[in-house]
Design a protein around this nucleic acid. Structure first.
Lengths: 358, 358
DNA sequence: TTGTACGCGTTATCAG
DNA sequence: CTGATAACGCGTACAA
């Protein structure tokens, strides 16, 4: 029962070595003006006694926590978990901790999470918005206190913010154009809530591609989901594919819905890609699992996390004007698989997704 | 540029209301011995001035951080991300933050993560071991300082620890027996590193099931992978399925490898489930995506995270003797899908996995 | 190169 | 019910 072993402090070390606590503090922090012998002695004893700095005392003093706060909708989604993985790795290498919170897509949770993260005096905040969120004033307290905020993926449409994103418009344009090039004439857009700019941008990219190729814009083929989960994907696909006249191509705003659409079409005897071509968004691991393999827009999740951290670090070092707003836009590309290949085209993608283990 | 707006403290409030800081502190914490009028006045002003407590000062004083530390291998794996999601939700409801770190399966990272989490004086630590880890002494510092540790899923084989687990032996036994009941005679075990007890237990469950049913134990059919990722799964499956005499059933220690085995078998023209039946482990979302759908052992990830937090909370409140060791074992069950159904059996599972969106 | 002295914002103890 | 005071452990201006 060694529970009450008190923590070793710099005072203990100072006393033992007959030097002052400040010298110990400086020695431990490799301050330039400390003799190498004392430095060595201090570090040796610290090591021996298992000294570990008290980060609260340090943070209280310096007002810096060296901690990043993260707010996301759900941790257990492929895109989000990879994003977080990228954030955590990059943050750790830079000497920062990562506090994680999820909103479950409720704005209310987002608001309380902002508050509790503020209480923890996080060094910076990285946010991907809750699906519900349309007002952004709950981030003001953070901004006003000079804490950098970086928005990722699901970002506010506001100006003057710092964000890491992809070009959703052009990605969607490219995906839709790909369907057109494969011979599709009646293309459905299966998207998410329009108040989230990423989905609206994808819709606009879709519309633009149709326009460029002089295809009719059929409003009945533009469908918005709320959650874009598997259940909803299946339900909506099944409604659309039961109509008298069905589309010959579908551009889905995520892979989950796209996979459900494939499953639904298969169950109805609709041949993919012959009768119906489908392309998704995100390039989740499931793309290579479904049969036929799903074409998709590759979304660089890990890299977006890294970029967000780098931007936050730059803001902390005043390399970026926090008031100005800045944008990092990462490249996407479409990954063509069988689900969109017309008869004449050859198979191109045979990669096996790296994925879960347990 | 309001960056330098100083945080409001209890002193500011005290001064304004002509009361003492301690009264403010008590009022804010709903201390029983404070008049309701002063309480109300304090809270009102705190609200008005946007007072937010400084958690460092409080933690420094109380030596409690109200923070859980998490150490896992990789955040972006289906099982792990769901585990974390369960932890974060439960912890947040109990008023705790969650600091997350990943080891990328390196013991060395595990060691440094333990140290930095200790520096942050976490209230409790929840760990799922790195694949590599076989020595556990780096957790001693945490234990010795009385911080509760709860191991989840990948746990040390040591006695006297607190852990949340499933019964890997019986789950594997059940899965293997299921294959036998479906008529399999030559069953392959495709497992992970044996020094990780979860994999060793699964192997032993497999062996026991064969034994019970008087099936020969063919050592050439017991294969251990290192990473159990998709690439390795495919490679090993392809080696085994190229032999003169191939198995008629495979029990995989995870779904990723199982899916790769299905893909490999299909590419070789081996019919599933007619010629080869496959069952996985975890019940990841991909199980319902692959064709044929993959039977698997359902692994309650979210619930394990919740249980781990509850156990940690109980230890913090001294409801559990930290020195004693305790175990929560959650139930698993096999989910039968097409990949293991002999001709006569009917399809049973048609659920659609709830999954990613973006 | 090292030591002294103070303050960061809270909470706990003790006294009233 | 409320106030004064000390202490938590560290970093840093200032002095030596």
């Amino acid at each position: 029962m060694e529970e009450n072993k008190k923590d070793v402090t710099i005072y203990d070390i100072a006393e033992e070595l007959n030097i002052s606590p400040s010298t110990v503090s400086r020695a431990l922090n490799d301050h330039s003006s400390i003799g190498s012998k004392t430095k060595k002695a201090v570090k040796k004893l610290a090591e021996k006694w298992g000294y570990r700095p008290n980060s609260f005392a340090a943070s209280l003093r310096t007002k810096r926590s060296n901690t990043f706060g993260i707010i996301v909708s759900w941790i257990n989604r492929p895109f989000i978990s990879s994003l977080i993985s990228g954030i955590e790795n990059t943050a750790r290498e830079a000497g920062f901790h990562t506090i994680i919170t999820q909103t479950q897509d409720y704005t209310e949770s987002e608001i309380t999470n902002v508050k509790t993260l503020y209480d923890n005096r996080i060094s910076a905040l990285i946010v991907s918005l809750a699906m519900e969120t349309t007002d952004y004033s709950h981030f003001d307290s953070i901004r006003n206190s000079g804490i950098p905020i970086v928005f990722v993926d699901r970002i506010p449409p506001t100006l003057g913010i710092h964000k890491v994103q992809i070009n959703n418009f052009s990605a969607a344009f490219e995906a839709t154009e790909h369907l057109i090039e494969q011979g599709c004439k009646r293309i459905m857009y299966f998207g998410g809530a329009r108040h989230q700019s990423i989905y609206e941008d994808r819709r606009l990219g879709y519309v633009a591609a149709l326009k460029k190729h002089d295809l009719e814009l059929d409003k009945s083929l533009m469908v918005q989901g709320n959650t874009l989960d598997a259940e909803e994907g299946y339900r909506i696909a099944s409604e659309v594919l039961s109509r008298d006249s069905i589309p010959d191509g579908i551009f889905c705003a995520n892979d989950t819905a796209a996979v459900s659409a494939i499953q639904c079409a298969k169950s109805m005897g609709i041949l993919i890609p012959d009768q119906l071509k489908i392309i998704g968004f995100n390039d989740d691991p499931i793309c290579t699992i479904i049969d036929p393999p799903l074409s998709s827009v590759h979304h660089p999740a890990v890299e977006m996390g890294e970029a967000a951290v780098r931007k936050a670090l730059a803001m902390l070092e005043n390399e970026i004007d926090p008031e100005a707003g800045s944008t990092v836009t990462l490249d996407t590309h479409i990954v063509v698989r069988k689900s969109t290949q017309s008869e004449k085209t050859l198979e191109s993608d045979v990669s096996i997704a790296d994925q879960s283990m347990g």
